[in-house]
Design a protein around this nucleic acid. Structure first.
Lengths: 187, 187, 187, 187
DNA sequence: TTCTAATCGAGACGGTACGTCGTGTCTTCTT
DNA sequence: AAGAAGACACGACGTACCGTCTCGATTAGAA
């Protein structure tokens, strides 16, 4: 979560502990309150009790920091389904649940938007969000990569778009999406 | 498409004709070139040969103007399917096709992002994009509104998210999504 | 005070009576409240219950209107001194008194400033303010024009500058200026 | 002349040297060319090779910057007269001379106008222009403060008003004003 | 009575400046 | 090195005001 120093060197003053956590926490809270675009890094630094310099030393941009924060807040997907269908079910449920958290929601919507503009954010988002889930399904259950990719996009995209246009998402919606995706991938 | 004057009566100097069209055209072109975030209203006004004040007189914000522009560029969904499945097929194909247009893509991605920040944009986007398609399927074929809503969000959301994360969308993707949605709605 | 129609013609709809008065009154009041620069013609028109078009049909610019308003508010200098010294005394007293009126003060300060930028205003101000007083002293008492001009500028300039820097002017100040000018012009 | 940083301590990046000078120089030149009202801060910043934000970080408004610029351009009044009359003579001559400089003239006229609107400008103008001259005459020659204040206003006000209404000022005018003021203050 | 011309209300329009905000970089001193 | 503090460049934002314009609707005297 906390990005390593650019040089692996142990020379010089070590990074103060807890700083990255404080920054991520501050950003998550501010984004939940004012939205992604409405959150500026000066405020994040001030809230975290840290100088802006420190912030830019650890992350290259607002987007990179936010991706990090999203990954932290989102947590890891569940593991240990008994078969592919079960795994998919768990993953979709977990995602639908997490997305109903305001913090996750605001971050995710803001970042997907940013991904449309900033290529770095797009790559980071893909690597940190889609790939972990997809790789697991491919490696463990031998599902076809193309299908899985589409399935993930279908889940995330649908839920997100629903949020963007409705501002809300119901348990029933999540259930439906689960069914669709299970049917799609699991033959 | 062109926003109406505040008063319905024809008092005062009438709005110059063609101005709204010129502005929308300019915005669409600039967004296609520089992206949504990279397009500023000064440039839009200059390109349209119009003063910035005029622009702000007709639309309250960049987002509202862009929603208008998107609706114009997107055009109307196809009509005249022989049954519900056919209608859905046509609608999804049309949407997938339109979304592959750079202009539509850039506008749509930018606006969905904006919808996460600006409630007015969210409402406008919903009213101008989802409702027309959904209403048709509900009114004409008697489909269940909740199902249709989800279906539309699934199509748009999936395609959009795919665009955001991949930067591309293939004909095969569109075909798959069509199949899923047809199966979903058409019992 | 009320400017005549551009053409002397009697054809067409006659100007509505009382309009110019209402406009001048509105401007004087607004300038007294918000200062010259802080007063905009839209507000003047609205306050006077008149369209901006009407206003610009009667006066060519904000400055011209304000000069008119100043002349109206200022009124005519006193006449009928028994000798030159008496005339001067009366004129200075009158001016000092009028300048202590907030309305006159704000207008005058604003207009002298405008005169530094706008040549039309400068000429108008000169013709409407200085020339009447000066001509009288020259024509009636045979004073030397150059001296009188300087004397008028000295009175107005001193009082105005004092106002500009102090925001106030005392009766004693006026008395002193009177003495200086009387001694200056009356040999 | 150059406004101090907000904190007295030397924390953070120090202000770039020469920036304030460059800005003042740019403003003086532009005001001399286009007048006070015709000079905009974008152009000042561009001419000085500086960002507009930097400019607003150092001065709170156009007026404050202009007061600074005026003080710099005006320079210090002459010192070292053999008696009060001599000092006054020198001061008036100096002022009349400086005022004939286009740069000083334009700035002064514009600022006195601004003083009528902006109280901060009024106070600054008073402190930076009148007080230095007045204090010297009071402290050194024991002249009565009230008299001196009026005398200064008389000189500046008369010359300025003359400029505003005539657009010019002659050597003879300056000589006359000198005589009046000398007689006024020097008993 | 019809024609003609000026006036009024309402508001759109072009142009220009304003002051503010946010990102990411840079510079200095301190730890 | 890392951190705190804050200056800086750049670029966009939305607003305000001036003076011009274009309408439809009046309102008179002239034909």
């Amino acid at each position: 979560m906390c990005p390593p120093s650019s040089t692996g060197a142990v020379r010089g003053r070590p990074r103060r502990e807890g700083v990255s956590d404080a920054v991520v926490t501050a950003l998550v809270r501010l984004v939940a309150t004012h939205g992604y675009a409405g959150t500026n890094l000066d405020a994040v630094a001030r809230t975290a009790g840290v100088a802006k310099t420190t912030l830019y030393r650890r992350w290259p941009s607002k987007g990179a920091l936010a991706v990090d924060a999203l990954a932290t807040t989102l947590g890891a997907p569940p593991v240990g389904g008994v078969d592919a269908a079960d795994d998919i079910h768990r993953a979709v449920d977990w995602l639908a649940q997490r997305v109903r958290d305001l913090e996750v929601r605001r971050l995710l919507v803001g970042l997907v938007a940013e991904a449309g503009v900033d290529d770095d954010v797009r790559r980071a988002l893909r690597r940190r969000l889609r790939d972990p889930v997809a790789e697991r399904l491919v490696d463990r259950w031998g599902l076809e990569p193309g299908e899985v990719d589409l399935a993930v996009d279908l889940v995330v995209g649908t839920l997100l778009h629903r949020l963007a246009l409705n501002g809300e998402i119901t348990a029933e919606d999540a259930e439906r999406v689960t069914r669709i995706v299970t049917g799609l991938v699991d033959r």
